[in-house]
Structure formats: C-alpha cells, structure tokens
Design a protein around this nucleic acid. Structure first.
Lengths: 251, 251
DNA sequence: TACATTTTTGAATTTGAATTCAATTTCACA
DNA sequence: TGTGAAATTGAATTCAAATTCAAAAATGTA
C-alpha cells in the first residue's frame, strides 16, 4: 500500500506548480526594489486581514488597497488581478499544512495516535486562528480546480505519510490498496462539519459549548482512531478531553 | 438525548422560512397565467441545466435565458436576480433530502444499518446524478448563511432521526447529549471528500475505480457503523461491495 | 546634486453584465 | 371577433467594479 514517498512528493510538486501557475500566469511585475517588496507584502497582509473581515466573495480590489492604505491603482503594479493575489496568499497559507508532522513515523497504533493528534491539532488551530482563511480556502477549492486538487493532495499526503508504516497493524491490515484508499478518503473529511460549525458559522448548539483546541483535537483524533482501528485509543492519551476519558472508562 | 421531534421540526421550518425569505425578499411578480407559470418553470429547469454545464460562478442571467430560449429581459418578469433563482432551484432540490428515510425507526443496530444505508444511498445518488447541483449547494452554503444553516439542519435532522431510538444500544449509549452531538457532527461529514472526488472533481486515482452507487453507499454506511459502534456491521448487509464482505470475512 | 529608475496617485476610462423599458405579441374570456 | 391583461422582445441604459494612464513623488546611485 501507500505510494512511494518520492512518487508522492513529485505529484505534490507538480500540483503545486500547476496551482501556482494560475496565480502567476498573467505577467506579474517582479518588484524591483526593497520598497517595492515591502509594498507587495503589505498588500498581501492587507488581503489576509480583509479576507477575515469581509470574506472572499464580497472583497474588492479597492477594499484591499484601502485596508493597505495605498492607492487603488497601485494594485496593478504588483498583481494582475484579485484572484491571483488571493491565490498567492492561500498558497502561502497552505504551506503551514505541508511540513512533516513528526520526525519519526508511527510504527504502532499508539504511536500513530500522537501523529494523528499533531495532524488534527494543526488543523484545529488553523480553524480557530484563521477562520476566514479556512473559509476562503474552501471557496477557492471550488472555483479553481488546480488549487482544489493541490489542497486535497496536501492533506492526503499528510494522512498517508502518517499511516505509511502501519500497514500490518490493526483491523485494516489486510485491506487492499484500493479499499484503503477509499476508506482514507472517506475518513479524510471526518470533523469538517464540526470544525466549520464551531469555528466559522457558530450557529448551532455545539458552538455554544466551550471546547479547548486541544480537547477538540483529541475528539477528532480519537474518532479517527475508533473509525480506523475499531478500538478505543489508549486512555492515557486523553489529556484535555476529560469527559471523553470518563466515557471511555465506563467501557 | 435527541431533541423532541416537534422541536426539531419547528427549528427546521424556521430555517426553511429564513432561507426562502432571502429568495423571495425582493418583490417577485407572481405569475398571472398558466403560460406564465410554464415560463417560470422553464427558466428554473434551464437554470438547473446551465448549473450542471457551466457552474454557479460562471453562470450569467443571459446564459440561463439563452438555454431557456427566451429573451434576456424576460428574466426580470419572473425573478428579481440570479441569486434568487438559484436559491429557489436549490430549495426545490434540497427537498429531496427532507423526507423521512424509513417509516419504522430503527430499534437495533442492525436495523439502523438499513436506515443509514437508505440515507447514504440517497446522498450517493444525488452526487452521481446531479454533481453540478451538489456543487452549487456547497458553494451557496458559503455564500448565503441562512441557506447554509438550513442545509446543515436538514442533514442533522435526518441523522438524528435515524438514531433517535438507539440511545441505549452500542458503545455510545452512555455518552452525554453534548458528547453525542459533537461526535455526530464530526461523523456527519464522513465520506464528503470521497463523494466530491469520485463524482465531481474526478481527478484522483479513486475516481478511476469503478464503484457502483450501491457499493458506494455500503462503503459509507459501514464506515459510519464502524466509527459509531466500533464494530463490524452484519456481514449479510454487504450485498454490493463484495470486496468489503471478503475483507470482513477475514476477521 | 543630478538623473534615471521605481513607486505612487487618483481621476478618467473601459468593461461586462445587470437592469430597464417602450413597443409588440399572445392569450383568455366575453 | 374584440378587448384588456399578461407575456415577450432585444436594444438602450445603467451600474459597479476593474483597469489604465499621465503626471508626481520617492528612491538609489554616481
């Protein structure tokens, strides 16, 4: 099972290039001075702030430039159009999900728990700190096919990497590659609704609960663990979601 | 656990009204003749076709009217703007998810499997037949808060309804209401990525596999079952996903 | 300090699609 | 078959936002 690391890495690089190409396809003026570089960065930062405030679909070039405190016309000195700017900002943001999760690959289920936790904690943190960016990412995934493909690949890669050394352990050990791929793809979206609900839309009863980021990550990790191994995760891993621990004890 | 049926129903009706209000807020001319009613329906049908072909964000009023074979200006005789039309079309579409899943509520885990299967099969079918509509629904959920809230509620309702009579059975029996709510919310998105991948974007290796709609529904139902009950579903339920059955036999 | 390069300005222009509208056709019913 | 109400047309208009541009300011360098 699981693609060779090099193969997956290449795939990722190609996807990254494709998505970046869209952002850079139209001739962008490279900055020609330190001042220019600062101004460009300033626009990108302003874009992030505006994204959090206004949201992608309502955001206009004028909004970004006003937030940046620069003249509207200057925008075109640095970016060809709004979408390219947003795409570039999102690609920067996406890199936070790209890095290795842990140095050591997990060899046992218990070890996997820690890797999974790191993976989910990173995601929870992103939703909590940058709900607007996460939302924009979701929206852009629909609008720009290449970007969507890239994001999916980044997450698949994290996921596969974390499970790479575990093929023999647990109940899924003797599934075929294709079966495993399907299951992982289906489990990849576990928690999405919950996170969107709790950190972005904040309408439901759940969003009224007070759940720490670490507890949230424990909830999600243990749910994935349960779904994948059909077992309870080790009790001692529940460090923040005390209520989950209590529940597990009653088994 | 689980809200009373009436309470949940009211909540749903309010959300439906809210979402519909957006679609109807701007004064819409009611049709005043049979011919008018036909024309209006024609526009809605054309909208669905155009949505499948072009997608929501690229679609223009002119596109819809051309597809309908009517003059552009006539649009305003029937709808105030494009978003209202799309919203109305989506609300019609959404009603396919609103109905009761089965007449008898599930009383045992095994019975739940059937309810769950019906639930998932309905969703799989929708993705398979109307990928454009499903995509548009997702996009609109981000754009129109009230619509998003409604869609979530519709699906939560189906889910809660299917599990209503099961509180005591299985490992989740002694979870608190809040815990259960969190878990269900998190599990609510199981399979999303897979379905989007397989029926909408069609880029990954998974989309090259040939999976029947019934097999897909079995995959998802059994995955939910495993995640929720930490058990394999009854072997005899696997009627189309033969490979899954084989795998389960090896346990 | 002079001068070429780069950055900056914001008003003027362009663009593409939404929206209006006056004129025409169709329809339903007496 | 005549009449008023409703539906239909598509060219003209409006609109909001993107885009351009000529001129001014800032910058770095010799």
């Amino acid at each position: 099972m699981y693609k060779k690391e090099t193969e997956l890495k290449n795939e990722l690089e190609i996807a990254w290039k494709k998505a970046a190409d869209v952002a850079l396809s139209k001739s962008v003026n490279p900055t020609k001075s330190h001042k220019g570089a600062l101004a460009r960065t300033n626009i990108k930062k302003s874009c992030r702030r505006t994204l959090e405030k206004v949201g992608y679909h309502k955001m206009k070039i004028a909004d970004v430039m006003q937030e940046a405190g620069m003249a509207t016309g200057l925008f075109y000195h640095y970016f060809p159009d709004l979408r390219s700017l947003v795409l570039e900002v999102l690609l920067d943001f996406l890199s936070r999900f790209k890095g290795k999760i842990l140095n050591k690959p997990a060899l046992t289920k218990e070890e996997w728990y820690d890797v999974g936790y790191t993976y989910y904690f990173r995601i929870v943190k992103s939703y909590a700190l940058y709900p607007g960016m996460m939302q924009c990412m979701k929206e852009m995934m629909w609008e720009e096919t290449n970007f969507g493909a890239l994001v999916r690949l980044v997450f698949i890669k994290s996921q596969e990497e974390s499970l790479k050394k575990l093929p023999q352990e647990g109940i899924r050990g003797n599934m075929s590659n294709d079966q495993l791929r399907i299951i992982l793809r289906a489990l990849g979206s576990v928690g999405e609704e919950l996170l969107i609900d709790y950190y972005i839309t904040k309408e439901s009863k759940i969003s009224k609960l007070s759940i720490s980021e670490r507890a949230m990550a424990e909830y999600l990790t243990s749910l994935f663990y349960q779904a994948f191994f059909l077992e309870q995760p080790p009790l001692n891993k529940m460090k923040y979601a005390k209520d989950l621990k209590e529940w597990m004890k009653t088994q």
